[in-house]
Each structure stands twice: as C-alpha cells, then as structure tokens.
Design a protein around this nucleic acid. Structure first.
Lengths: 139, 139
DNA sequence: CAATAGTTTAGAATGATTATAAACTAATAA
DNA sequence: TTATTAGTTTATAATCATTCTAAACTATTG
C-alpha cells in the first residue's frame, strides 16, 4: 500500500489540501507502528528534530484540529494547561501518572464492560472514557 | 451546627487563615444544599452577584487551589480552556454534553463497578473517573 | 501592644491558543 | 499551458486563563 496516498486521502477527507507541510505532519503522525500522545508543541518539536524542518505553529494547529474533527486523532480528556492528542483512535482509556504527569494507554479489553444505568433525555452516548489516576505505591 | 466553625475548620485544615474574603468564598461553595460545577471565573462572578462584593482573582485562585489540594473540592478531568471544579467531592462520574458544553453528575451507583485488569508496576490506583460524552439523539 | 507571618490586591508576566493579513501554492477552467 | 480562483503558510499580533509580584494590609503570637 502507498502511504502517501493514505495521507492524501486523510487530508482530503478532512477538507484539507495535501501540501508539503501537511504531508510532513502526516509522516510523523501516521507513519509509525506505535501510537502516541502529543501536544501541539511536542509535535512541532518532533517535526523540526526528525525532519529538520520547521512548520509554523498555525499550520500544525490547523491540521491537527481538522484531523481531530474527522476522527483521525483523538483529543484526550484531561485537565492540563495544554491539550493532548492521541494517534490511537480506537476506543480505549488512560492511566494518568499524577507524579510524573504521564499518560499511559489502557486498552478497552483491560477494563470490564462499562454499563451506564442512567440516561439523559434527548441525548445519546457518544463515547465513554475512563481515566485512572495513579499514585506511587507507597504514598 | 455552626456553619462558620465548619468554614474556619476547612480553611485551617487547608493551611489557610480564615479571612473575611475566604469566608465569603466558603459561603458560596459550601453553604448550599446542592453541589455544583464552576470555573474560577464563574465563582468570581457568583461572589460579586450574590454578595455584592468583589474579591480579587488571585485570592479566589489561592483559596480554591488550597481546597482542592485538601480534597474539599475536586478538579474535573475535562479538556477545556479553563479548569472546572466540583463541590461534590464524593467519588462520582460525569456526563458531558458536547453540544451545550455542559457537565452533568453521574452517581457512582449509576455505573456498574469498574474493574481495571491491568496494573502499572510501582503505582497504585488513586481514582477512577468516567466521562460519558453525549450527542443529540438524532445526530 | 508590638512583632511576625500570612493575606489581599492590582497589575504585570507567562504561555497556550486563535486571529490576521500578506505572500505563496494548489486546483480548476479556458 | 496559463490565468484565475480558492485555499495555505507564515510571522506576528491578539486573546484569555492562570501565575507571579511586591506593596499595603490583617490576623496571630508572644
């Protein structure tokens, strides 16, 4: 399969033209065996380090937000001064290490099925996210 | 029971002297049958409206953070440009209405017990929070 | 009551995010 | 192709929540 075609598809699907800069962003985000968590600042740094190229913050924001809207990225529900995204878009959960301020994936199958016994009239469930906060063992 | 004594206790317990301003903040936060969600800006507005008094933002931040550290308030794990707090400190969860950007409490007993089947070496679970995102029914 | 330790406040500093507008590039039509 | 149009990139400015600062003030302690 052609990765580049995949990138172009993702971009077009998100209503974006495939430009040089955006394809670079795709390389970092999607050309990877492992999924990962990042902030826009992180991503920007990775781009300049790995690709020796600087893409303006505005472009990174614009691209990341378009992908998020289309579901190619997920925003992580955690209170922080910056927003974190996840390239793992499958339904899953997170541990958050409060001491080290680090997020760790928690697979859906590592959590027993969650059953919500209350409903809100006129609303339906879009997603269920579990955040497990961690402390050091001897705390 | 004397509410004022309770407020003073909460403040002292949080390492804060009971000042006029802080007692006003307590009145809004704790002298209430219902629990509620708020941002610092919200709280500041409520104070000036209900009590006809303006307390500087720095003081509100300082007090709210001290209470949060001691567990008299809970920070809500949700990604937003501002931080939301909850006067409901019991273990519970939240719905989040994506359209109206509104938080709704979800009682622990309305969620079947959550079992996490994965552990992280050297860490123990501090809390488990579920966020149920909602969409309009016909979406 | 004096000395000390902690508090309040306005305003400045910080930092993430969003907006702006001019120069540039991709897409489209001729 | 080339010209036109629509969308993009960028540096920089604007915004906004939060944190910091330092001077004036207040509670606590001896």
């Amino acid at each position: 399969m052609n990765l580049n075609t995949d990138f172009v598809d993702k971009l077009r699907n998100s209503g974006l033209r495939p430009t040089k800069q955006r394809l670079k962003i795709c390389e970092i985000l999607f050309d990877n065996d492992k999924t990962f968590h990042f902030s826009v600042k992180d991503l920007s740094k990775i781009i300049s380090q790995k690709l020796g190229e600087k893409i303006s913050l505005a472009t990174v924001y614009n691209t990341v937000h378009a992908f998020e809207k289309k579901g190619y990225l997920k925003e992580i529900s955690i209170n922080s001064n910056q927003t974190y995204f996840d390239t793992n878009t499958s339904s899953h959960h997170h541990f958050f290490d409060e001491k080290e301020k680090k997020l760790i994936d928690l697979k859906n199958e590592d959590v027993d099925p969650i059953n919500i016994k209350k409903t809100i009239p006129g609303k339906k469930i879009k997603s269920i996210e579990v955040l497990v906060k961690l402390d050091p063992d001897n705390y």
